[in-house]
Simulated scan of single mutants.
Amino acid sequence: MKLDELWMLYEVDKRILGFSPHTLKAYFLQLKMLIREMGNLELEEVSLNLLKDYLAKQTERLKPSSLGHRIRFVRSLFSFCF
């Protein structure tokens, strides 16, 4: 399963849990940025080191609060699928 396919399952789950449309829109934007940077990888291709490298690059251009939001999304997405 690719990251964009994972989003469909993740979004449905979060809607059921009562996440607001605003939060889901923000999370979708985070996913688009993740895919733009890393590619639309298969889940098996995603590693902890790859995610750490992605987040480390983000520290150079993001404020701490924005970085925190990105980290929370990445944790939430990958906790959902593993």
Rank of each mutant, 00 (worst) to 15 (best):
L43R: 00
F78V: 01
E45M: 03
C81T: 14
S76W: 01
Y27V: 02
E5V: 03
L43K: 01
M33R: 14
L34A: 00
L43G: 02
L43M: 13
S20Y: 05
L9N: 13
R61S: 13
S66T: 14
V74N: 06
G68L: 03
K14P: 02
I71Q: 05
Y10V: 10
S76R: 07
L48T: 13
L77Y: 02
L67I: 09
N49A: 10
E45S: 11
R15W: 07
M1R: 15
E45Q: 13
R75C: 01
F80E: 00
L51R: 01
K2D: 13
M8K: 15
L29S: 13
S47K: 14
L48G: 06
M38K: 09
L24V: 06
A26M: 12
L17M: 13
S76H: 04
A56Y: 06
N49P: 03
S20N: 12
S76C: 08
F19W: 12
I35K: 07
E60C: 09
D4A: 09
K14E: 10
W7V: 00
R75H: 05
M1F: 09
L67A: 09
M1W: 04
K2C: 08
L67S: 05
L6H: 06
V12E: 10
D53F: 04
M33W: 01
S79L: 07
E60D: 09
L6D: 04
R15T: 15
F19L: 14
S47F: 07
Q30K: 12
Y54T: 02
R72L: 06
C81N: 04
H69M: 10
M8F: 10
K25V: 01
L55Q: 01
E5G: 12
K14R: 15
P64H: 05
Y54G: 07
P21W: 08
R70F: 01
V46C: 02
Y10A: 10
L67M: 08
K25F: 07
F28D: 06
R61A: 09
S20Q: 11
C81P: 01
K25M: 10
L41V: 11
R61I: 15
T23F: 05
T59P: 02
L62D: 08
L41K: 14
K63F: 07
D53Q: 11
A26G: 07
K32C: 12
E42K: 14
L55C: 01
Q30D: 13
E5D: 12
K25H: 13
R75T: 02
Y10H: 12
K25W: 03
A26I: 12
H69N: 08
G39E: 08
K14G: 02
L6P: 04
F73T: 02
F80G: 00
Y54K: 11
K32H: 09
N49Q: 09
L34I: 03
E42S: 11
K25R: 15
L31I: 12
S47N: 09
M8S: 14
M38I: 15
M33S: 12
F73M: 07
L48K: 13
A56G: 03
C81E: 09
